[in-house]
Amino acid sequence: MVQRRQMLMLMAATGVSACADRFHAPLMPQAGDVGILRPVFVATNRVPEPGGWFTTDRSERISYMQLGVSIPPTHQKGQIRNGFKNPDPQTDFAIATRTDMDGRQGFRAALSRAIRAAPADRREIALYIHGYNNSFFDGVFRTAQITHDFDVPAIPVHFSWPSATHPLGYTYDRDSVLFSRDALEELLRDLRAANPRRIILVAHSLGTMLLMETLRQIEIADPGWSRRALSGVVLISPDLDIDLFRVQARRFHELPQPFAIFVSKRDKALALSARINGAGARLGNLRDAEALGEFPVTILDVSDFSSRNSHFTLGTSPALISLLSNSATLDVAFQTDRAGRSGLLPGTVLTVRNATQLILSPDLLLTKL
Rank of each mutant, 00 (worst) to 15 (best):
D21L: 14
A249N: 07
R123F: 15
A319H: 13
A117S: 15
S112W: 10
T171G: 05
P296Y: 03
Q248R: 13
T14Y: 14
P162N: 06
S317A: 08
S237D: 07
I129G: 05
V302M: 02
A279V: 14
R4W: 11
T348A: 07
L244N: 07
Y172C: 07
N277L: 13
P167V: 12
M101T: 08
R192E: 05
G68K: 06
Y132Q: 01
P238N: 08
I261L: 00
I236C: 10
P162W: 10
V233T: 10
N354K: 15
L330H: 05
A96E: 05
R246H: 01
P29F: 02
F245M: 13
I218L: 15
D173Y: 02
Q90S: 11
P196M: 05
S135R: 01
V140K: 05
L235I: 07
F312S: 03
L324K: 00
E290F: 15
R341H: 11
I115K: 07
A281L: 11
Q6W: 15
V42P: 08
A164W: 03
H75M: 04
P238W: 11
D57E: 11
G207H: 10
T171Q: 14
G32M: 07
S63A: 13
V16N: 12
P29D: 03
F305D: 05
V177E: 05
P73D: 07
K77H: 03
L27M: 13
M212N: 06
A110D: 04
L168K: 11
M7C: 11
F150C: 08
V16E: 09
G280H: 03
A274T: 05
H253N: 09
R338Q: 00
N133R: 12
N326F: 09
L178Q: 10
G131M: 08
T165H: 07
R22W: 14
H148S: 09
I220M: 08
A13E: 01
A18G: 08
R122V: 02
E186D: 14
Q217V: 13
S17Q: 06
G169Y: 07
A25G: 03
A319T: 09
R123C: 09
G103I: 12
L272D: 00
S325D: 00
L211G: 01
A25P: 05
Q335N: 15
F141G: 05
N309Y: 06
L111D: 03
F84H: 13
Y170T: 00
T91H: 14
V40R: 00
N82D: 15
G51S: 06
F252G: 01
R282I: 06
L211P: 01
